[in-house]
Amino acid sequence: MIEITVNGVAHRLDVDPDMPLLWAIRDHVGLTGTKFGCGIAQCGACTVHLDGVPTRACVTRVGDVGGQAVTTIEGTGGPVAEAVRAAWRGIDVVQCGYCQSGQIMSAIGLLSQNKAPSDDEIAAAMDGNLCRCGTYQRIRTAIRDAARTLA
């Protein structure tokens, strides 16, 4: 049995400790907002927070999570998350939307640490999140908008 806390709720999962956290969340905890894109830490679709730090769930063993708090897109809240979501909706960032859980988790992670990121800092935080629909220009604008809201 593996014990993990996801979005503040403790779960006891009957899974192999080698199972990536991604599949534990999607198939056993039952939250599907966290997405699968590559499985090798190349796309960021699976980004969750471990104790607030954006982490690729597809290459994180569920057995290694331990007591760290796992936050998924469904569990995001508070001023930063709300500012990010409002900015995303305000300029209609999404297209297919599939990458956007991961994009938003990375953006929340960035703005939680750095309330006024430079364009370079934004690029560094977001470069690991692929968007095949090419919404990057709007993601940059939305992060700037959210930063302004939080200032």
């Binding site: 599907t32 997405k35 897109i73 209609d92 999404v94 939307g97 599939y98 956007q100």
Partner: peptide
């Protein structure tokens, strides 16, 4: 579809 695609509630076929 902006709302559902920004809070994790949008359901894709993988879900």
């Amino acid at each position: 579809d902006s709302s559902a695609k920004t809070d994790g509630t949008a359901v894709y076929s993988l879900d």
